[in-house]
Amino acid sequence: MKFTIRAGVVKENIYKWVFAVSAFASLLFLVGITITLFIEGLPIFKEVGFFDLLFGKLWYPTYDPADFGIFPLIMGTVWVTVGALVVCVILGVGSALYINELAGKKQRAILKPMIEILAAIPSIVYGFFGMVIVAPFIQNLLGLPTGLCAFTGSLILGIMALPTVCSIAEDALSFVPKSFREASLALGANRWQTMVRVVIPAAGSGISTAIILGMSRAVGETMTVLMVTGGAAVIPHSFFDPVRPMTSTIAAEMGEAVMGGAHYHALFAIGLILFLITFIFNVIAETISRKYRLKLGLSG
C-alpha cells in the first residue's frame, strides 16, 4: 500500500538514538569526574581524618612524617578570590554599565569585541605577564620583598575574570525593558538616578549571576595563580604575603607525587573540594538566573 511505513524508519530511529546518547555525554563526563575525584580523593580523608585534613594548618606533603593540612591552601584561594572579586566586580560591572548605558552605538561596536579579546587571552599569558611585568612593578612600587603575592594574584585574576562578569552583566542590563528607563526619566529622575535606582535593581539577579560565575572562574583558575601568587603554603596574614591556592597546589605538585601515595590522594582531595565549591556556585547562579527569567517572563 502506498502509505505504509518505509524501511528507512529503522535507520532514522538509529540516528535519533545516537543523538540521544551523545546528548548525555556531558552528564556522563560530569558523573565520571565526580566518581574519579571521590575514588582517588577519599583515601586521604580516611588516613588523615576529615577535620585534620580540612582544617590542618600545615601542608608539608613531602616531609617524613608528612602533614596534609589543606587549610593554608583554602585560605590562599579565599584571599586571592576575594581580592579578584573586588577587581572584577568594580571593573567588570562598571564596564558593563558603561557599555550598556553610556556608550554610543559606535563605541559599543568596538568595546564589546575588545572585552571578548580580553577573554580570549590564554591564562598562561596572563600568568606570564603578571610574573615578568606586574610583580616586579608592584615590588618596586611598594617596596615589598617579593611582588609574587596574593595582591598581584588578585589583580591579574580579577582582570581575567572581568570579561565573564562584564559580558553576563551586560546581557542582563540589555534585557531591562526600555519602558523602565523611560518611565523613570519621565518622572524627572536624571540618568544616573535612573541607572542606580531602576536599571541596576531590575538587572540585579543577572548581575549577581555574573558575579558568582566570575567568582567560580577565579576559584578554578590555575596557571595564573600558579605563576604569580608566590606559592608559599602558609596561612597569609596580609595581601602582600605569598600564597598557594588550591588549584596551583595540584598543578605544581602532581608531577612529583607518587602515584597512589598519600600525597597523590591528597591532591585529588583538593580537586574534589574545588569541584564541589564551583559546583555549588554554578547551582546558585543557575537558580538565580532561572528565577530571574521567570520573573521577566522569559522562557528557556
Binding site: 500500500m1 502506498k2 502509505f3 505504509t4 511505513i5 518505509r6 524508519v9
Partner: peptide, 17 residues
Amino acid sequence: NIDINGKNVDVVKIRRL
C-alpha cells in the same frame, strides 16, 4: 479513503502526496 493518521501510515509518504 485511507485514514492518514492510521497506525501503519508513514507521515513522510503523506507529505510527499
